[in-house]
């Protein structure tokens, strides 16, 4: 069961790794806050997350988050990644792992070379399809069987979209998911060299939830 220090050092390690790949524009080092048994591993700018999320449009949410530095990592295609964990007495109670792609810049997969080579005209290429932001959330306290799975996956801004997930994700697992599905290509296996820590969280999915369509995170020996 990764504790706050392990989570923090996993975040640091994955950021460092992605620097080496040339995938990172900017990052904000994990910040640790403790008060009355509650430990938060989060990013600088977290205090603005509420005002940024209050925007009506996705572009508004993105731009406000971007401007105020509400992110852990800014990827080379300007997508923002937010990594936020909360622990009570060393036990994980909440996480928010979000991916916010740029609202109108062209898709990374289709314009890989232009992003990698810092083509200044990349901004003339607009997104063909709408951006698809997503989140892996975990909330032990808000959990209600089936209605609100403790660990769930949310696509876009649909508030009732909570696809059950078998267990919380470590920073490594989230970044691996992100790189594998959104940045890798046959010629560029960014995810391949990602450091693989052995620790992971235990299952939190209920029997009823596992009878539904859900996402399974492979169990790893804790």
């Amino acid at each position: 069961m990764p504790n706050p220090s392990q989570v923090s050092s996993q975040i640091t390690g994955t950021i460092r790794f992605m620097h080496g790949l040339g995938l990172v524009q900017d990052q904000r080092a994990p910040r640790r806050k403790s008060s009355r048994g509650l430990v938060t591993i989060t990013f600088g700018g977290i205090e603005h997350i509420k005002s940024a999320s209050r925007n009506q449009s996705y572009a508004g949410v993105y731009l406000e988050s971007s401007r105020r530095g509400v992110y852990s990592i800014r990827m080379l295609d300007e997508a923002l990644v937010q990594l936020h964990y909360e622990f009570k007495r060393n036990k994980l109670i909440r996480h928010r792992l979000a991916y916010l792609p740029h609202p109108w810049l062209g898709d990374f997969h289709l314009n890989r070379e232009d992003f990698v080579q810092s083509n200044i005209n990349i901004d003339t290429i607009a997104r063909g399809w709408p951006p698809t932001p997503f989140r892996f959330d975990f909330d032990r306290e808000a959990q209600r069987d089936v209605v609100h799975p403790a660990a769930h996956f949310t696509i876009g801004s649909v508030s009732q979209c909570r696809i059950p997930v078998t267990r919380p994700l470590t920073p490594y697992e989230f970044i691996d998911f992100l790189l594998r599905n959104f940045y890798d290509s046959p010629a560029n296996r960014y995810s391949a060299g990602l450091p693989k820590p052995g620790v992971a969280y235990q299952s939190t999915i209920t029997q009823a939830e596992s009878n539904l369509v859900h996402m399974a995170v492979p169990a790893r020996r804790a």
């Binding site: 640091t12 524009q25 900017d26 080092a29 800014r74 295609d77 300007e78 901004d123």
Partner: peptide, 16 residues
């Protein structure tokens, strides 16, 4: 990487 290791904040100038 090296700046990050030393806790020196640094960023690449972005697209827009």
């Amino acid at each position: 990487q090296e700046l990050y290791d030393r806790d020196i904040p640094a960023h690449l100038a972005g697209v827009d």
